[in-house]
């Protein structure tokens, strides 16, 4: 059994769990720590730190742009770990790292797990890491460091596979709201509602959070009627891009959604 801030959160907090994604090194290289602090202070429940990649195929334009900008700013996994080396002195909520597999492999998977555990990371979301390879090559390593692995599922994921993912997950399952890249916003449709209801009826051992297309209070509320919480990424990045005062704007953004 993994025990970390993430598993603890789901044991204690029941509803309306707000998860915010941002890209490390965006808008400015040194903004990572400021954004983390502002998110915690304003009441976000979980944070996903995105590790930028040159070819983010699952992402729409907004997160692509933030990845590219962060890379131009000089962000790397090593630099990110330097920036968050002491972040646990101030930040108590669960923090996950999200990104594509290639930069992680080049950094070295063992070193990645060790460093992440050392600085106080609670888990990873690596959407292009195959389930089989996670189980055969990495699970025991991650378990040893109390790191959760979060898998994605989509409306097309068959029940048998959802059950398999549920079986090996500890933390939560990332339910992609619709088959799309990130950042596509539209009202939650009847077919999506049916999909969420189907997920609820599966009685999974892990809670699920809904992501992709959640952008504001209305969509967050709606998602929360079907799940323990939801994840916002592109809308937050868009706000950061236009912000003149990060702490104030982040506080406003989070409060508007949580109010």
């Amino acid at each position: 059994m993994i025990q970390n801030r993430l598993t603890k959160l789901f044991q204690t907090s029941q509803q309306n769990i707000l998860t915010i994604y941002f890209t490390a090194g965006f808008p400015q290289l040194r903004d990572t720590q400021r954004i983390l602090e502002a998110l915690e202070q304003s009441g976000a429940d979980i944070i996903e730190i995105g590790m930028p990649f040159s070819d983010p195929i699952a992402d729409g334009e907004v997160i692509q742009m933030s990845n590219q900008q962060a890379l131009e700013n000089g962000m790397t996994i090593a630099k990110m770990f330097e920036q968050i080396a002491n972040f646990r002195q101030k930040i108590k909520i669960p923090v996950l790292l999200m990104g594509y597999l290639n930069p992680v492999l080049q950094f070295g998977m063992e070193r990645f797990c060790q460093t992440a555990a050392q600085v106080g990371i609670d888990g990873f979301i690596l959407p292009d890491l195959p389930l089989n390879e996670y189980l055969s090559d990495y699970k025991s390593l991650w378990d040893a460091h109390n790191l959760s692995n979060v898998f994605l599922i989509t409306p097309q994921t068959p029940e048998s596979r959802i059950r398999m993912i549920d079986e090996v997950s500890e933390g939560f399952i990332y339910a992609v709201s619709t088959s799309s890249t990130t950042g596509k916003t539209s009202a939650i449709s009847a077919s999506q509602t049916a999909y969420f209801a189907r997920l609820q009826a599966l009685n999974l051992k892990n809670p699920f959070l809904i992501g992709f297309g959640i952008s504001d209070k209305a969509s967050f509320r709606q998602a929360c009627t079907h799940a323990r919480g939801a994840i916002i990424g592109s809308a937050f990045i868009k706000m950061l891009q236009n912000s003149q005062d990060l702490p104030v704007d982040i506080a406003n953004f989070v409060q508007k959604i949580k109010s």
Binding site: S54, D55, L71, L101, N102, L105, Q106
Partner: peptide
């Protein structure tokens, strides 16, 4: 190049030491 992952396949690709293509 060096071994890594691009477009869904583990193969040799031209990349920086940080794994950017």
């Amino acid at each position: 190049g060096k071994i890594g992952i691009l477009h869904g396949s583990k193969t040799v690709l031209m990349q920086t030491t940080d794994g950017q293509v």
